[in-house]
Amino acid sequence: MADVIHTNYFTLSVLNRFGIELGFGDKSVEEVCKKNNVDVDFFLEIVNAFIDKDYFPKKHLQTFPVKLITDYLQKTHDYYHKLKVPEIENLIEEMVDSCYTQKENIVLLKKFFNDYKQELLNHTHREEEVVFPYTLALEKAYNSEELDNSVIELMDTYSIEIFQNEHDDIEEKLLDLRNIIIKYLPQPKNSKLCNKLLYELFNLEQDINDHSRIEEKVLVPKIREMEKIITKRFTKK
């Protein structure tokens, strides 16, 4: 497991999401996963997809239970809100405090990011309140032998199609912010802070990309397939 982190330290955040703590000595990935009640296959696919943009075994990922996938997605949400976003906010705050020549510009950035934070929050909130429960209920119906009419009612009120349509591009604004800082912001004296901020923004953007990829290429197709099969079962009846 130590080799995983040595190979790419970005995996630290993924380990964190699976609740794996450091200090595992020379234990293998499998041993560490077992000890932490983590599905080894799922962990490996997620980590590999995370560090390698070209590696994305969506067919295999679709075979994992919905619960595993949504749990992971849920944890990435927590990671954004509890860790990443506050970190970025602190950096911007620090920039405001340490800058005298163009405070008003930095305040603009701060406002921009604040709005973005709200958007991200709404986005993840909706997923947690509406989308995830829906996918879990659907999986339950899918796995059960009985045909329960409530699931059909549920599918009438919501479908994964709606999610896909309203699932907006949450990374767009981050890209804008990055471009503004790199290209257009008159450089503040404290370029160290500015670089740090950029680094964090890159980091968050990449993470959200990975996150959206799992939602759109794994969760959505998986649920759409279930919807189809459940509908079929009912029409047969």
Binding site: L175, D176, N179, I180
Partner: peptide, 12 residues
């Protein structure tokens, strides 16, 4: 400009 969103354009 490489900027897509309205808030981004506003800052620019």
């Amino acid at each position: 400009l490489g900027i897509k969103t309205v808030p981004g354009l506003t800052i620019y």
